[in-house]
Amino acid sequence: MDTPILTADSLVKKFGGLIAVNGVTLSIKKGDMVGLIGPNGSGKTTLFNILTGVYKPDSGKVFFNRERIDGLQPHQIYHKGLVRAFQMPRILQRMTVLDNLLISVKNPGDKFLPALFKRKNWLKFENDIRNKALEILEFLGLEKHCYVPAAELSGGQMKLLEIARALISEPSMILLDEPTAGVNPVLANDIYMKFREIKKNMDITLFIVEHRIELLIGHVDKVHVMHQGKIIAEGKPDDVINNEDVIKVYLGSV
């Protein structure tokens, strides 16, 4: 299938005089796992923020499943099936690790009256979803911490929780902002294997910011390279790392 799930058309975002995203156009195929690389401050996170409705672009359009989504609120974009995980883990400190996960799922008990009067209904749902959550916590080695306040996790564990939260919501597309930063290399590779599994089994499209290119190679279908707010290259990972411009601005400087 060649239908794009997500399309960005000439996106621009300025912060005062700084142009963080400067005319980004890209298109992501349904069911692909795509990487986004680029030096620090090149605008990757800002691009994610535009795609998920945190920022409104100064100009340009975003289409998700052919529907225009720029200008929508983040919660509306979630219901279209687009979800993201943050670069800096945003952990709900005074809530259990499990609750941190469960918040990402559409729950019949999220509404006021059903929460009060249809307890049986959502209790059953909670039971099912909890098992799924425990499974993913176990995969990430967090199952022991399931019921502790999330504030007690280490920095790396918080990062894992941030990813787990996005994975469990089972949208049609997930944006991950440096999912394995601060995660040990072995687990990082396992996480990429997990992404592949999710992509294959659940047909979820993944768009991943990653600084460690070696992690992307072999896992992703395509890589986009960003520099100073622009996409300077895109293509198969092997081609991209041999691209002269990319070597100059990114790989060469590492």
Binding site: T52, V54, Q73, P74, H75, Y78, H79, V83, R84, R90, L92, Q93, R94, M95, D99, L102, I103, S104, V105, K106, N107, P108, G109, D110, K111, F112, A115, L116, R119, W122, E126, R165, S169
Partner: peptide, 28 residues
């Protein structure tokens, strides 16, 4: 009963981090 339900979990999420609540589809 309310705070110990998924609804209450949303409220606590709003207390902790509104952006997370809206990122995960809750109309804050």
């Amino acid at each position: 009963l309310i705070v110990k339900s998924p609804y209450g979990r949303v409220l606590k999420t709003i207390r902790e981090d509104e952006l997370i609540a809206s990122t995960y589809g809750k109309n804050v």
